[in-house]
């Protein structure tokens, strides 16, 4: 089996399972658990970029995906401090 086709279908499977896990996974009321589940569809999108040979899009997406985590963590902690 060719590696490109395998990577493409693995990316689709990761995208679908990750989205289902975010919507109806275990303990989804906690916002931190939901943020950690969000990482799986992002990784599926990375695999699809990799299968279509989009190198620049892959590099930009990886670099931005580690910056957006900072913003989300800051927002979740601020919300938890305001509710206390």
């Amino acid at each position: 089996m060719d590696i490109v086709i395998s990577t493409l279908y693995l990316g689709y499977i990761l995208l679908i399972f990750g989205t289902l896990g975010v919507i109806l996974g275990p303990e989804r009321r906690d916002p931190f658990v939901r943020l950690l589940n969000i990482e799986i569809p992002a990784l599926g999108v990375m695999l699809i970029f990799l299968a279509y040979n989009h190198t620049l899009a892959l590099m930009t997406y990886i670099a931005i995906n580690s910056l957006i985590v900072l913003v989300f963590i800051r927002t979740i902690i601020r919300k938890e401090e305001l509710e206390a």
């Binding site: 395998s6 693995l10 499977i13 990761l14 399972f17 990750g18 896990g21 996974g25 275990p26 303990e27 931190f32 658990v33 950690l36 589940n37 990482e39 799986i40 990784l43 695999l47």
Partner: peptide
Amino acid sequence: IFCIVIGCIGVILNTHYLDK
């Protein structure tokens, strides 16, 4: 591919933060 499939199931099914 083995690591990605096992990790996808593991991230969704564990509930503690450090396990995830």
